[in-house]
């Protein structure tokens, strides 16, 4: 819809609303606002039932269909499958409760709208009913929550020993990655050492850091657990991989952590989704300033040998750092 059409539509709705408004205003003028006739109540009750309940249910059905056309591709990590399962379970459980309670509400409206010859029944409530509600809701919630308690600890537990280690650092408004190199250890970091040559502030005196690889590319092998260490340089960000259904905040001064096991390579996902341009996108999910909505990076999931190959081709951070330093010293002489 272009903006012109949009304005036309809004104007049209306004005129319509104005007509309804004027009629409504006039209708009421010679009526007694305290008098609620049987027919008035009946009309109001049925209007509510049809417009809000029936209309609302139809609209919800349409909206669910619309969503199914646009939902995320199938979860592409082992943990994502669990999370999606819990989400779907919640959809079903709350969907049922929603149907029951709203149906009760609106059926009672058309069943018990006010009439002169009727009288309300004097029912101040029963303790048994209240207890039944408490017990039923508690049991329902327990059933809903038990698998979640189990999965929560599985997702949040420390990563397996053999996990591929990657560190990601968020800053306004991009992400930077670090791989620990052949020694499997990250060098120490200190934010006071950050400089254009050393964007992460890796301590040059820590030998563990000499083989670290700093890169803007995020590549991981398929079917292997990946342990992601998450940091931030300035404000809070949040590392969100929608296809994996996972996110974790990046908090300055407080290292955080997340691990996942990708199920499909990028290539495989292209086949499964039928979208040849599919790419794993990573979004920032915590308001971090003016560039928040464009703080994008991508993830490439590849076969393990390809990953090893790629990794072995990267230059260690320390090499570039030293080269730059030498060049700097030379230019200064």
């Amino acid at each position: 819809m272009t903006f012109g059409e949009f304005m036309l539509l809004v104007a049209g709705i306004f005129i319509l609303a104005w007509i309804i408004f004027s009629i409504g205003h006039l209708i009421e003028l010679n009526k007694n606002p305290e008098e609620f006739s049987d027919s008035h109540n009946k009309r109001t009750a049925w209007a509510l039932f049809i417009i809000i309940y029936v209309g609302g249910m139809l609209a919800s059905a349409y909206s669910v269909w619309y969503y199914l056309e646009r939902k995320l591709p199938e979860p592409a990590s082992v943990q994502g499958v669990w999370i999606q399962t819990i989400n779907d379970l919640n959809v079903i459980a709350t969907g049922i409760v929603f149907l029951i309670t709203t149906t009760m509400l609106f059926v009672y409206i058309i069943r018990y709208y006010g009439r002169k010859e009727r009288r309300a029944e004097y029912i101040p409530g029963k303790i048994k009913v209240e207890m039944a509600i408490v017990v039923a809701v508690a049991i329902g919630l327990m059933i809903l929550i038990l698998p979640s308690g189990w999965y929560w600890f599985k997702i949040m537990s420390p990563a397996p020993e053999n996990a591929v280690k990657v560190e990601v650092t968020g800053y306004q408004f991009a992400w930077l990655f670090r791989y620990p190199g052949p020694d499997g250890k990250f060098g120490k970091r200190d934010w006071r050492l950050i400089s254009p040559d050393n964007p992460l502030g890796i301590d040059p005196n820590d030998p563990a850091g000499h083989d670290d690889i700093v890169t803007t590319e995020f590549k991981v092998p398929v079917d292997k657990p990946v342990a992601l260490h998450i940091r931030s340089k300035d404000v809070i960000h949040s590392f969100f991989i929608p296809a994996f259904r996972m996110k974790m905040d990046a908090v300055p001064g407080v290292p955080t952590f997340m691990w996942f096991t990708p199920k499909y390579t990028t290539e495989e996902m292209r086949e499964r989704t039928g979208n040849e341009n599919f790419i794993y996108e990573v979004a920032c999910a915590e308001l971090c300033g003016s560039g928040h909505s464009s703080m994008r990076t991508t993830l490439d999931v590849v076969e393990p040998q390809e990953f090893e190959q790629w990794l072995s081709k990267q230059t260690a951070w320390y090499e570039t750092y030293n080269k730059n330093k030498a060049a700097l010293a030379e230019s200064q002489q």
Binding site: L105, G114, E121, G125, E130, V137
Partner: peptide, 30 residues
């Protein structure tokens, strides 16, 4: 998580009580 779902219980009690309030009432739809 457990505490949060616990808070859903009194919330549900209230919802059902409202629904049961209009049940068998004589609703004046002001």
């Amino acid at each position: 998580m457990y505490m949060t779902l616990a808070i859903a219980i009194p919330s549900a009690v209230k919802v059902f009580n409202w629904i049961f309030t209009i049940w068998k009432g004589n609703l004046r739809l002001t």
